[in-house]
Design a protein around this nucleic acid. Sequence first.
DNA 1: ATGACTTTGTAAGGTAAGTTAACTTTCCTG
DNA 2: CAGGAAAGTTAACTTACCTTACAAAGTCAT
Lengths: 389, 389
Amino acid sequence: MKKKATREQTRAQNRQLVLKMIYDQGEISRAQIARLTRLARPTVSDVVTELMEQALVVELGYAPSTGGKRPMMVSVDPDARHMIAVDLSRSDFRGVVMDLRGEVKVRERRPWRRGGQHTALDLVYDLLDALVATTDRPLLGIALGAPGLIDAVDGVVVQAVNMDWTDLPIRRLLEERYGVPVYVANDCQVAALGEYTLGDADQLCDLVVISGGWGIGCGMVLDGRLHHGNPIGAGEIGHVRVEENGRRCSCGNTGCLETVAGTHGIVERVRALQRERGGADPAEIGFDAVLAMYEAGDEGVREVILAAGRGLGVVASHLAVILGGCDIRLAGHLAALGPAVLDAIREEIAARALTELARRTRVASATLGDDIVLLGASALLLRHELGVL
Amino acid sequence: MKKKATREQTRAQNRQLVLKMIYDQGEISRAQIARLTRLARPTVSDVVTELMEQALVVELGYAPSTGGKRPMMVSVDPDARHMIAVDLSRSDFRGVVMDLRGEVKVRERRPWRRGGQHTALDLVYDLLDALVATTDRPLLGIALGAPGLIDAVDGVVVQAVNMDWTDLPIRRLLEERYGVPVYVANDCQVAALGEYTLGDADQLCDLVVISGGWGIGCGMVLDGRLHHGNPIGAGEIGHVRVEENGRRCSCGNTGCLETVAGTHGIVERVRALQRERGGADPAEIGFDAVLAMYEAGDEGVREVILAAGRGLGVVASHLAVILGGCDIRLAGHLAALGPAVLDAIREEIAARALTELARRTRVASATLGDDIVLLGASALLLRHELGVL
DNA sequence: ATGACTTTGTAAGGTAAGTTAACTTTCCTG
DNA sequence: CAGGAAAGTTAACTTACCTTACAAAGTCAT
C-alpha cells in the first residue's frame, strides 16, 4: 500500500537530489545546482546550509568568475562519514573501512574455518570491532555481502550453510552492538549492485553478474533495482542442468552447472585428466594450478574450461531470453578464466537464442575486481543512507 | 536522474491515495479515509471535494451511525469515465468499452486477415471509431495489447510481423486522432499485468503469465512492476530449445518450445499422428478438434499434450531458478489444455530445480479467461491515469 | 426526556517548504 | 569607470499540509 505524502518527504527528496548532484559533480556552486536540479536558488541555498550543518558538505573557496560574482564551490567531504563493508563470501572474511568516495582506508581479514574454535558470528564481531576501532569519524553504517539465502528486507540470514547460520537476525544483532544502520544482502546480488553502480557505465537496463567460487550464483539488477526474489533466493543458478548425461552433483541431480563451471568441478575434471595422463599427484592441483596449466597452453585444461563456458552459456541464454537481452558479467573465479570462456558463452547464446536477443546480450568480465562485493556493499550504504548513486 | 519534489507532487500523490482508498473500499466515509490513510480529516475533505468537482467521486448518502454523527458515504462513480481496451493478439481484433470498474459496456470485433483489403491500422481505426461512437462519457484513455516487440515507454510498435508494422508510433497516431491518453504494450505483458492486478490475489511477489497462441510468450510482473526488457522484448520464450533433437522451427533452429507447445506445433503433431493412423483427413484438424480428441480420451493426443507440458516445464524451470520461485499462470490456448499439462510442468520443474525453488513455484491456469488481455489493458489505464490498482 | 459523550465534517489559523522578485556584492567588459 | 551579469541572500507570497476548535447529529445511561 502506498503511503501518504508530506512536506517532510518533499524536503527529504530535494535534500537527496542536491546531495547527489554535489556528489556526482564533485565540485559545484549553488547556482549551478539550482540550474541542474531546476530548484529555485533560495531553496538550494537553504538545503546546502542544512547539509553543511550536518558536515556532509563543505565550502571549498571561490572559483573563477563566469562573467559576474565568483561562485563559491561546495563539495561532499569524503571523510564526513566512514563506511564499513564486509565480504563473507570467501574462506577468509574481509572487511574494510572506506570514505564516502569508496576509498579504502583500512583493510582487515579473518580466516574462517568451519569447525574451528570460533563461530562465524564471533569472527564477524571480531572483524567489525577491529575496523570500528580504526576510525574516529562518524559511521554511515555497516553493509555485508554474505553467501546463502538472505532476506535483505528484514536483514536476516535465512540460511548460510558454510557458516552454520539459520534464521540469524544479523541486522538486529549488529545494529544493537554498533548502533549504526546495517544492511545485509546476498553476495552475488551485492556484487551485481556494485558492478551496476560503480562499474563501467554504458550498461543496458538489466545487468546480471554471474559469480563463481565454490558455488555459482548470479545477482540481477533489473530496471535499476536489485532483484531479490520471492522474497529471497533469486539467481541460484548453480544447479541448473546444463549437461544431459553429466556428473552427479552434491545436490543429488546430475549435470548441474556447478559440476561443470564451479571451482570444485573444474579442479576435479583437471585432476581426472591428470590421473589419465599419469602425471603429477592430482591431489596437489588447486584452482591456481589449473589456471597456470591453462596459461601454459595445456589443451586438455583448455577443453575443461571451454566446457565450463558452454555450461555457463546455457544458463546465460536462459537469462538472455527471459530478460530480453542483458549485460552479463563474470566475477569471482570465473573472471579469471579469460576471454576464451567469454567466447564459449557467446557462442552458446548465439546457438540458443534468437539473433536479435543474442545481439542485445553482452558478455564480459566484471570491471570491478577482487573488491566487487566490498564495493557493492558500499554502494548499498550510499544508496540507502544518502541516496547518492 | 531523479526529479525535484514539489508541493504539487505531494498533492497529486495524496489525491491518488484517497482515490485508491475510495476505489478499493467501494463505499467509504471521509473520516474512515482519514483513519486509513493517516491524513488529517480536513485534508481528506479537501481532496474529496476536488475529486467530486471532477465528477470522479459521488456522495451516496448517510450510513448508520457508529456512535456519533452519521457518516456520508462516498464512492467512485463507475461511469465517471469510460475506458477503451483493445486486444490485437488474435486473428480477430477485439475491443471493448468499459466503465471504471472494468464492466464491459460494448464489445466490437474486426476479423483481420493479412493481405486483405484493409491494413491492420485501418482496421484498428475502424474498431476504435465504432467504440468511441458508442459512449458519451469522457474517455479515460485507450489501451492496447499487441503481439510483437513493443516499446511501451515511447508507445511504438517496433515490430509486429503479423500486422506488417515496423516502428509504428501508434501512441502518437491514436492520441492525435482521438485526443485521449493512449497506452500500448506487448500482449503477454498486458496479460500478466491483468492477472497480477485483477486475478486471484494471493500471489508471490513475482508473477509470470505464459501465453500460448500461434506463438508463445510470457509477461512478467517482478516486484509489482511490469518488466519490459532491454528496453523491450522480455519474455520471448517461444524459441528456447526444449528438445535436443527436435523438429525444425520457422526460426531456423530445432526443438524450439513453439514446435512442441505452440498451437501450430501441437496441431501438426496430432495431424502426423492421424496420418500414421490413416484416419480422417488430417488437414481438417484444428486446435478445437485436438481438444475434442483429448477430452474424448485419445491417448496419442494426450501424449502430444504432455510433451507440450514437458517443454513448457523446461522453460518454467528456468524461470523458477532465475527468479527464485514465482507464480506461473497459463493463458491463451495453453489454458485450455487442462490439469494434465499443469502436472507435466510441475514434474519437469521438480526434476530440474532444487526442491526449495520448486516448492516456491506454483503453476496454475490464469484466473482471468478470454478477456485477460482486455482486462490487463484496462489495468494499464487505471494504474497510469488514476493510480488505482 | 435529558445530559454526557462520540463521531462526522468544516472552518480558522499555523507552519513548512517551495516560488518569485528584488537587492547586494562582486566581477567582467567596453 | 559605467553598465551589465552572475552568485547568493532577503523578503514576500503561495500552497498544501497540520492542529485546534466547533457545529451538527447521533448514541447511551439514568
